Lab assay of single mutants.
Amino acid sequence: AEKTGIVNVSSSLNVREGASTSSKVIGSLSGNTKVTIVGEEGAFYKIEYKGSHSYVAKEYIKDIKDE
């Protein structure tokens, strides 16, 4: 089941290729951006990003809701 969340950062949140802080950064999301969460892996959520799937750190996503 998909969930949505809100990016909870003051500046921007790195979007990564994989579920690791050493993964390549492929983009960023600004605070209060709504994201669609399709899964989770460790400390990361797998999200829909620009037509494919990428990862963001869970600690920076708030207001998780089931869609």
Rank of each mutant, 00 (worst) to 15 (best):
A1M: 14
A1N: 12
A1T: 13
A1Q: 13
A1F: 14
A1H: 14
E2L: 15
E2H: 15
E2W: 15
K3F: 10
K3M: 10
K3R: 14
K3W: 15
K3S: 06
T4Q: 09
T4S: 09
T4V: 11
T4Y: 14
T4C: 13
G5V: 05
G5S: 03
G5H: 04
G5R: 04
G5Y: 06
I6S: 05
I6R: 09
I6V: 11
I6Y: 12
I6G: 04
V7Q: 02
V7R: 02
V7P: 03
V7E: 02
V7I: 08
V7M: 03
N8S: 12
N8T: 12
N8Q: 10
N8F: 10
S10H: 11
S10C: 15
S10W: 08
S10Y: 08
S11T: 14
S12K: 12
S12D: 07
S12C: 15
S12T: 13
S12M: 12
S12V: 12
L13K: 02
L13P: 08
L13G: 04
L13D: 02
L13Y: 04
L13T: 08
L13F: 04
N14G: 08
N14E: 15
N14M: 14
N14F: 12
N14V: 15
V15Q: 03
V15F: 02
V15H: 02
V15Y: 03
V15T: 03
V15R: 02
V15E: 01
R16H: 15
R16Y: 15
R16V: 07
R16L: 15
E17M: 09
E17N: 09
E17Y: 06
G18S: 13
G18C: 13
G18Q: 12
G18E: 12
G18P: 01
G18N: 09
A19T: 05
A19Y: 04
A19K: 03
A19W: 05
A19S: 07
S20W: 06
S20H: 08
S20M: 06
S20T: 10
S20D: 09
T21E: 14
T21W: 14
T21M: 15
T21C: 15
T21D: 13
T21L: 15
T21S: 12
S22D: 14
S22L: 11
S22G: 09
S22M: 11
S22P: 03
S23Y: 06
S23P: 01
K24P: 10
K24M: 08
K24G: 05
K24I: 07
K24H: 06
K24E: 06
V25T: 06
V25Q: 04
V25I: 14
V25Y: 04
I26G: 01
I26M: 06
I26D: 01
I26L: 08
I26Y: 02
I26R: 04
G27F: 03
G27M: 03
G27I: 03
G27R: 02
S28D: 06
S28G: 06
S28F: 13
S28E: 10
L29D: 00
S30A: 14
S30D: 11
S30H: 10
S30N: 10
S30G: 09
G31F: 13
G31Q: 11
N32A: 08
N32V: 05
N32R: 09
N32I: 05
N32W: 12
N32L: 09
N32G: 15
T33L: 06
T33A: 09
T33R: 06
T33H: 06
T33Q: 10
T33P: 02
K34N: 05
K34W: 09
K34A: 07
K34T: 09
K34I: 14
K34Y: 10
K34L: 12
V35C: 03
V35L: 05
V35A: 01
V35K: 00
V35F: 04
T36C: 11
T36L: 11
T36S: 08
T36E: 04
I37Q: 00
I37W: 01
I37C: 03
I37D: 00
I37Y: 01
I37K: 00
V38W: 06
V38P: 01
V38Q: 03
V38Y: 07
G39H: 03
G39S: 06
G39L: 03
G39I: 02
E40L: 06
E40D: 06
E40Y: 05
E40A: 07
E40P: 01
E41H: 07
E41N: 07
E41W: 07
G42K: 05
G42D: 06
G42M: 04
A43I: 09
A43K: 09
A43C: 12
A43M: 11
A43D: 15
F44N: 02
F44L: 01
F44H: 03
F44V: 01
F44D: 02
Y45R: 01
K46I: 15
K46L: 11
K46M: 13
K46Y: 06
K46A: 07
K46Q: 07
I47P: 00
I47L: 02
I47G: 00
I47K: 00
I47V: 05
I47A: 01
E48R: 12
E48S: 09
E48M: 14
E48I: 15
E48F: 13
Y49K: 00
Y49C: 03
Y49R: 00
K50C: 12
G51M: 05
G51H: 05
G51V: 03
G51D: 07
G51P: 01
G51Q: 06
S52Q: 12
S52H: 10
S52L: 11
S52R: 13
S52I: 11
S52M: 13
S52V: 10
S52F: 10
H53M: 09
H53W: 13
H53E: 07
S54A: 15
S54L: 07
S54T: 05
S54R: 11
S54P: 04
Y55T: 00
Y55M: 01
Y55D: 00
Y55Q: 00
Y55S: 00
Y55I: 00
Y55R: 00
Y55H: 01
Y55K: 00
Y55W: 12
V56E: 00
V56F: 01
V56K: 00
A57C: 14
A57D: 08
A57Q: 13
A57S: 10
K58R: 07
K58S: 05
K58F: 03
K58M: 07
E59C: 12
E59N: 08
E59G: 07
E59S: 08
E59L: 10
E59T: 08
E59K: 13
Y60M: 07
Y60K: 06
Y60A: 08
Y60L: 06
Y60F: 13
I61H: 01
I61W: 02
I61C: 03
I61G: 01
K62L: 11
K62W: 10
K62F: 10
K62E: 09
K62Y: 10
K62P: 02
K62V: 14
D63P: 12
D63V: 15
D63K: 10
I64H: 07
I64G: 06
I64T: 07
I64A: 07
I64K: 06
I64L: 10
I64M: 08
I64N: 06
I64S: 07
K65W: 10
K65I: 12
K65H: 11
K65N: 11
K65F: 10
D66C: 14
D66M: 14
D66E: 13
D66L: 13
D66R: 07
E67C: 14
E67M: 13
E67D: 11
E67V: 14
E67T: 13
